[in-house]
Design a protein around this nucleic acid. Structure first.
Lengths: 231, 231
DNA sequence: TCCCCACCTTGACGCAAGTCAAAAACGGGC
DNA sequence: GCCCGTTTTTGACTTGCGTCAAGGTGGGGA
């Protein structure tokens, strides 16, 4: 594992706030790992029992029914924490959407270290509370919003989330971005089918609300219209 | 505020693990409050900024759109923690479903106390992680399950959650229980309409899977069938 | 450069769940 | 025990989204 000192998420991930000695200790417990797009990091009901920080790339958290239906229940971006410390084994698989680099720890090691470092547990708590907030607003979307509302909300969220990681150091949401999702994956986030997603994208393009320069690229032409549609 | 020593959730809520001195300090910051069924404790985007422990009763966490659609995004039972410490104001209202008693704290006071007591923060972290797990499995339900699957899953979850609080000290899920939800509220939990909920209940009754002795009472006659339907 | 294959789009059609409307059943209060 | 308002159930009809089935299309590899 290369040194945390050069880590790009050192000051944003839960490791921020640890002093050099602590970072060294944590460093010695973990290791870096690369995951290619499409490759799983954790299987549903896995017993490999690991947790991780995302350094680079985007990963999906997904649950599936026996008959193959999938629902993406979370998306992890750089500096996000992955896995289920303390007790339970995670009920969701983690799969890389893009090529990604993560910093992984055995869950037991991490649990012990965390319990000895309240500052780290506090960071993890704040993160978990935020994730719970985000997840709850996604429940509203899944349970009560129509397909057009879902798509508009999704595009707005993407333009905000991807701006933080984006190349340009500009503030505010990105006007143009590259989706880390295929159409099927967008469907799995929104609780729709791929056909419905495709039709809604086409409709927004025809209405002049967005441009679709390529399969993965999106440009928001009329943000006001999207906001109105998102409800 | 009556003493924590007699509190029925003293050993289950996040206060468990605090010693007598700490409990006394926490005690002096909070106060007990009764909330009648239907009465709100926290408004959406509230600035009253409070957090609470549930002592008794059941409360719903709900978000709504401008045009009046509602989605219940969480349910709080005795010993559960309510509210959003550290920073953000909560995006959801909290409303009592049954008459309830809670132990409330000003958020600032609670935040300060929590940061000084890692054991309490740890308890809160474990609770928040569990709630996130539960919320994520509910996303799968909202996004990918059919109405019959949703109803079956809901009834099974109710029979487990309400068993813990139930009068009889029996173990395992309750065979018969009293729903803390109206039909409309069941619909708001499952992302359905009241009519669909009613029709599915009637169908399960006609199929001999459940009995409905009164509006709020449910008796599970054939748990196996429910498990199969839940998917 | 071109070919291939996975991914995406488009169209026709069906159905699960929503909507609208009215009747029925409950249960709290007198 | 009997009202009366509220909640629930039931029925008839509609519709948004899913399903099924053909085409397109773009980008990576030979």
């Amino acid at each position: 594992m290369s040194s945390c000192e050069t880590c790009v998420v050192r000051n944003r991930a839960i490791c921020s706030g640890l002093d050099n000695k602590e970072i060294t200790a944590l460093n010695s417990m973990g290791r870096r790992r690369s995951v290619s797009a499409g490759e799983p990091l954790i299987w549903e009901d896995d017993d490999s029992l690991l947790v991780a920080n995302v350094i680079d790339g985007v990963l999906k958290l997904v649950t599936s029914t026996e008959d193959g239906r999938e629902q993406i229940v979370g998306v992890a971006y750089p500096s996000d924490f992955i896995g289920r410390p303390f007790g339970q084994t995670s009920r969701a698989s983690v799969v890389a959407l893009t090529d990604a680099r993560v910093c992984v720890f055995a869950r037991n090691d991490f649990d012990r270290f965390a319990r000895e470092h309240p500052e780290l547990e506090h960071k993890l708590l704040e993160r978990t509370l935020s994730e719970l907030d985000r997840t709850r607003s996604w429940m509203m979307l899944l349970g009560r919003k129509t397909a057009p509302e879902k798509i508009a909300t999704f595009l707005l969220e993407m333009s905000e989330r991807l701006a933080e990681t984006g190349c340009q150091p500009s503030f505010g949401p990105a006007r143009r971005f590259s989706l880390p999702f295929s159409r099927q994956q967008v469907a799995d986030v929104l609780g729709l089918t791929i056909e419905t997603v495709s039709r809604q994208f086409t409709k927004l393009k025809n209405d002049g609300v967005i441009e679709l320069p390529s399969r993965r690229e999106v440009e928001i032409v009329n943000r006001g219209a999207l906001l109105a549609l998102a409800g």
